[in-house]
Design a protein around this nucleic acid. Structure first.
Lengths: 268, 268
DNA sequence: GTGCAGTTGTTCTAATTTGTTCGATTTATA
DNA sequence: TATAAATCGAACAAATTAGAACAACTGCAC
């Protein structure tokens, strides 16, 4: 994580970093942090003491763990309300498909925002997107190269659309495209709601070698007004474990590579 | 960074430079700055003290780091606090130059954000920009067509830079470009701080028929490290009424079309 | 010239941070 | 439960950094 770099952290920055790390990891050990920051364990203990006093973590013997409250902290308002657990589980699974050095395309949507948030541990990847909320999230991570595809602003969604966005996609070679959808059905394929967004989605699908669709189970066997592509174009579908058994079997029988994201995490 | 050049910095310029450096680096140490500017650590500490009082950085033991409004928010920070009156006056004047139907380019910077905000009454105009804060402001106004120029994200500023941004500009024909600057001097012309931003500014200047520079009076007869263009390329300069009389006359004698934005309203 | 305001460097002391030592406490294991 | 191992935290020491005070210097107005 801090691998090769010898950069030294100022005290507040080190504490901030510990706090950030605990957003990704459930727990951290003093020993681990001592090695990571190259300081004495006493220093780490003092950091944890301070952070606990600020309510930012909970100390344990040998380390610290996440504090229970768990508020989500978006600076802008995106509808995260419903089924956030599912979205996070899907996002985590999607992360596992990303390798160092990848160039990936990320679509518009709250599930994709969760995905982008989960990318925070990744190094050396390039993310192409046409959605400003994704970019604001990615801006927190200096190790990720972010490219925003230009275009005409769609005010209500803060997405960029139109011919320019579509054409720009053509000039890239992406490894994977992570796509959000309005609906997926075995006979009508992938569908969505907005004509302009669909234009861009189609270009994304043409540009990337591998197409990965992120969808919560409510999208399965639902049809939205605008067609995006056939199921055959999709390389992988990641869906939460709320999906109906029969629908799952139906999709798999049609050759769809379905990955189930478990919403229940087990501590040990 | 300051490599070959042995030129010594005036106090305000050194402070400005420190502030700019913090947009690129997360943190800076007093020792580092002491060596860079060849002054005593006490001087650096006094600089940091001043800059912290202005809200432009956050001091730590041994140095300073970027200001963060919220803990884990992106580090970019628009300094609206200081000299907001001047900025608004300049923005108002700039608005008077915009006609219905215009296609305008708007640069990066807090003065430009004020300008974009003042555009709210305008109809039927198209705004091209490479700065996300501008876009977030414009998104509130459905009557304005906003085009965000794509490119590589500059995390600290939320601006888009690089070859893609530059090339995209080439495909437009804009009526006017509204440009922010780091400094303007009669012998060194327009200058700024960041190489990548300057690349884009140059492309903006080439694309637009008319170049309008927005600058508060502190920028006049100041020189920043990177050259942008000669004064001859500038069609109009809008500056607040804090400008020194002599400097104003000097600029006008050189043929610059200077527009003064009055900060004081009615007095009777 | 004198006086003034602002900036800078130096010196010295205070405050902060970190590391080490060592006895006390907790956890793991037989 | 008893015992060993790991971890904790208090106290002290060492290093670094901060900040106050003073003197020197600059540029500018009179």
């Amino acid at each position: 994580m801090l691998d090769g770099n010898n950069e030294s952290f100022s005290t507040p920055r080190r504490r901030q970093y510990i706090s950030e790390l605990l957003k990704e990891r459930k727990s951290l050990s003093v020993e681990e942090l001592r090695v990571m920051f190259k300081v004495s364990s006493m220093t780490i203990r003092r950091d944890l003491l301070k952070l606990e006093a600020e309510g930012r973590l909970h100390r344990t013997h040998g380390g610290a763990e996440q504090v229970r409250t768990k508020e989500y902290e978006p600076s802008y308002h995106v509808r995260i309300k419903e089924s956030q657990g599912e979205k996070e589980a899907i996002a985590k699974k999607a992360c596992e498909l990303v390798k160092e050095g990848d160039v990936i395309i990320v679509d518009v949507g709250s599930t994709l925002l969760s995905f982008v948030h989960s990318l925070s541990q990744m190094n050396q990847i390039t993310v192409l997107t046409n959605w400003i909320p994704n970019v604001l999230e990615l801006a927190k991570n200096p190790k990720i190269r972010t490219v925003l595809l230009g275009g005409t602003l769609r005010n209500a969604e803060l997405s960029l659309i139109g011919g320019m966005t579509r054409d720009l996609l053509g000039s890239f070679n992406a490894d994977k495209a992570f796509i959000g959808i309005g609906g997926l059905s075995s006979d009508r394929g992938i569908t969505d709601f907005n004509m302009d967004e669909v234009e861009v989605k189609k270009a994304m699908i043409e540009t990337a070698k591998e197409i990965i669709v992120l969808a919560d189970h409510t999208k399965i066997e639902r049809v939205a007004p605008i067609g995006v592509c056939a199921l055959g174009a999709v390389s992988k579908l990641i869906v939460d474990d709320g999906i109906d058994e029969k629908l799952l079997n139906l999709l798999r029988s049609q050759g769809m590579n379905v990955i189930i994201a478990k919403t229940q995490e087990q501590t040990h």
